[in-house]
């Protein structure tokens, strides 16, 4: 098994054979995860697939049954006190003291970090509030916050200090579309500052939009991991022809070498051939096929996921 130190080019998170067993149930089963420094790493999987259990092991909250985990080059949970000051985390939604104001919640969490300078505490809390757009509501009691505001405050707590690694578990949960966009742009901004972002989500869209790398989990196992472009490329786009003359279209396409043809009511789809698509279109028109639509549908990460698992994404483990 490779072991790495947290060198600039190395992995920020590295696990080998990481396993957590609850009774007979394997929540996480032999996970070998490698998160490159500087990446925005999407951690995908349906609800109940073991994502949160993995994150809890990485953060030293629960002890692995077997296997090892290294964060920032140090073993967890052994080195929590040296590793975690450099890690900001949002785990399974925000948790706040309802009887404290948003600002006081941040001060409370900051005072729990023995490496946080109390002299800059207030200024850092204000900066974090500003960063998540919560300055106006900072004096309100947290129990009066909406879910979206709580989520923002949780993010602010993760941003109290400059971090090397941000672990964000479902950060856009409970946010409206505008809020989701804001969080995404915040994540991009942080990543461009050099922070590695480990982002778990069950929303494929989200991962596809912000992540450079991704890993997919189902039922406690890691199915694949790698750069998002590679994963999505695995599931090819499909050539789609919309026409009332499906029979003729299918025949012409077959002659041109289009494989895996599927004919539906008014559409013919297949794997794109190696030839120029303009020629394919011309051939269809020449054969008298009334072409109403023609193009290649982009493959999404979701297609890749379905191709990998052979099942829908919303299946819980």
């Amino acid at each position: 098994m490779p072991s790495t130190s947290g060198t600039p080019t190395g992995s920020v998170i590295e696990t080998s054979g990481l396993t957590k067993r609850y009774g007979k149930h394997l929540a996480v089963d032999g996970l070998d995860l490698s998160v490159p420094r500087g990446s925005v790493f999407g951690f995908l999987g349906p609800n109940g697939s073991g994502k949160t259990t993995t994150i809890r092991m990485l953060m030293g909250l629960i002890e692995p049954t077997s296997g090892r985990a290294k964060v920032l080059g140090r073993p967890m949970p052994h080195d929590t006190r040296r590793v975690l000051p450099h890690v900001g985390a949002l785990i399974e939604g925000p948790a706040l003291y309802g009887f404290l104001s948003g600002r006081d919640n941040l001060l409370r969490y900051d005072s729990a970090d023995p490496t946080a300078d109390p002299r800059t505490r207030k200024a850092r809390a204000e900066a974090a509030l500003d960063r998540v757009g919560l300055t106006a509501a900072a004096g309100k009691k947290a129990k009066a916050y909406s879910l979206g505001m709580k989520q923002r405050l949780g993010l602010a707590a993760a941003l109290l200090q400059p971090r090397e690694l941000l672990v964000l578990d479902e950060p856009t949960n409970g946010l409206d579309p505008q809020g989701m966009r804001e969080i995404r742009s915040l994540v991009r901004e942080l990543a461009s500052d050099g922070t590695t972002v480990f982002l778990s989500s069950h929303l494929l869209d989200e991962i596809e939009q912000v992540c450079t790398h991704a890993a997919v989990m189902t039922q406690g196992r890691l199915i694949t991991q790698g750069p998002v472009a590679e994963l999505a490329a695995g599931a090819r786009g499909r050539l789609t022809v919309t026409t009332p003359d499906t029979g003729d279209a299918a025949r012409v396409l077959k002659e041109l070498g289009v494989a895996d043809l599927v004919v539906t009511e008014d559409r013919v789809t297949g794997e794109p051939p190696g030839t120029d698509l303009a020629d394919v279109n011309a051939a269809l028109v020449e054969a008298g096929v009334r072409v109403r639509g023609f193009g290649v549908e982009r493959a999404s990460l979701e297609d890749a996921f379905v191709a990998l698992t052979g099942e829908g994404f919303d299946v819980a483990g």
Binding site: M59, G60, L61, T80, R81, L84, L96, Y109, D110, A112
Partner: peptide, 10 residues
């Protein structure tokens, strides 16, 4: 749920 955030603070 605040315990987990206190512990990761750390």
């Amino acid at each position: 749920g605040t315990l987990r955030y206190l512990l990761v603070a750390p």
